[in-house]
Amino acid sequence: MPEPKLLYCHCQYAQVVPRETKEAVLRSLCEAGVDFEAVADLCEMAARKDPALARLSACGALKIAACFPRAVKGLFHQAGSDLAIESTEVLNMRTESAEQVAERALAPDLQPNVPAGKETIQIPTPA
């Protein structure tokens, strides 16, 4: 598998990703001196059906620092550019720390985590 491409979403038009998290992740990528793509807002790109999404989804191995994997999968699908489930890892800046996201983004390996189908988690009810 080729070295994963990196995509970073700045979620510019909402405050749902903690500002300090996205800034720290972006800073880590900048300090690492690696090639990566940064988009202002993945939702806006998907709404525009930006052709870059098709190129990225077909690049072979992709790590995306954005939000929930289910949402990212849906956004790419809605843009007409389905993600390759087996070669995409989504790093969730809404729930993970900047350190966790940066570590996974810069790790050489890929841990695919995009849901392959319908998943419903069971929450045990108190006795």
Partner: peptide, 25 residues
Amino acid sequence: FATLTALLERGYTVARTSSTSPSEG
């Protein structure tokens, strides 16, 4: 970091690249 932040906050998509990149649009 400062340059990317300034561009992202204006809504642009930016590829930081050390080689010639494919471009679309």
